[in-house]
Amino acid sequence: MNNEKLKEYIETFLDYLLDVRGYSEVSVTTYEIALRQMSGVSHFYEEDGISVLDITPFRFNIVKNSKKTIVKKLSAVRSFVKYLEDQCNIPVKLIADESIKVPQSLPKPIEEQYIEEVLAKANVEEKLLISMLYGLGLRISELSGLKLEDIKGEWIQIHGKGNKVRELPLMKSLQKLIGVYMDQNGPKRYLFEKGNAPMNAAQLRYKLTKLFKKEGLKVTPHQLRHSFATHLLNHGARIADVSELLGHETMATTQVYTKLGSVKKMQEYMSAHPLADKNL
């Protein structure tokens, strides 16, 4: 199932509104505009026999619309989903259709360019420290307890909160970096060691904050985890996948990230689009 299938469903829905429900052409056009905008950026896929419609990217796109416009567009999406379920007998799980309130205490993500600049000046151990937190979205406690036996080729096994275990894919570049680091440092049991014991969270946190402080940045390990999630979502990753990578129990926890990049995304759009400075 893909977005082409989604567009086909939308066409049948619009015909249904016009021919069966007797909606006016003006009303149908309103639905059409909202649903075409949604289908152009959202994710539509099948999981465990259920169709999933993740409209997170759509929410990014309409975040600066008036509240009334957002309500109308989301209403069009919900009506479409109800049509699929009631008229087509297609069960649909709709993701990110509710308003998300971001806690004020949520750390701001770090700009991608700043992370890249620090990585460019870091030594092998420092690069690995940043890459494990930012490249995998690990908690600092998870990194502290990471054993060499948990690294299995292209995958890594993470022991998270509540003794829950999740498998994460290792990027080729990170696999290579781990290999270089192990050749240089020769850890025996844990990836980051001091003596015969693993470096604790405080030791790793100190190394990280000191590293970014050199560049005039105040950064915490938790901020790198937030940046991992936010940057993935900003680049189009599915919220369900990001939630699984983070080890969240529910996607509701992950959804707070859907608002983090919205203001910056809108600013970039307003400055980059050819029509942004035109008086239409």
Rank of each mutant, 00 (worst) to 15 (best):
K259R: 11
A122L: 06
T56G: 13
Q255C: 09
T230S: 11
G186Q: 14
E111F: 00
D150M: 00
Q255N: 09
V180H: 09
D97S: 09
V63E: 10
M266C: 08
G162L: 02
S66A: 14
S51E: 14
N89F: 03
Y31S: 07
E142Q: 10
S51G: 04
L94P: 11
L133S: 00
P57W: 13
E149H: 01
P187K: 05
L94V: 12
N2G: 15
T30W: 08
L148Q: 06
F60W: 08
K213Q: 15
K68R: 15
E46W: 01
L275M: 10
V52D: 05
I140R: 00
K213D: 15
V256R: 01
S271L: 06
S271D: 13
V263F: 06
I130H: 01
I50P: 03
S227A: 08
R189N: 07
E193P: 01
K64Y: 08
K7Y: 03
I62P: 07
Q267H: 10
R139P: 04
L275A: 13
E149D: 13
F192Y: 01
R238D: 05
G22M: 04
E154K: 14
M171Q: 10
D241I: 04
T253I: 02
Y16Q: 07
H235V: 03
F228A: 01
T254D: 11
M132Y: 09
K7G: 04
Y16G: 06
L14A: 07
V118F: 08
E142R: 01
Y23P: 03
Q255M: 15
V263W: 06
V118A: 09
N163H: 01
E98C: 08
I50F: 03
K259E: 12
K82G: 08
N163P: 02
Q267S: 15
E193H: 03
Q184M: 15
S271E: 15
V118P: 00
G153A: 14
N234W: 02
S75V: 00
K68W: 02
L232M: 15
E149N: 06
Q113D: 14
T69K: 09
L17R: 15
F228I: 00
E112R: 12
L204E: 07
P91N: 13
I130T: 05
E8N: 04
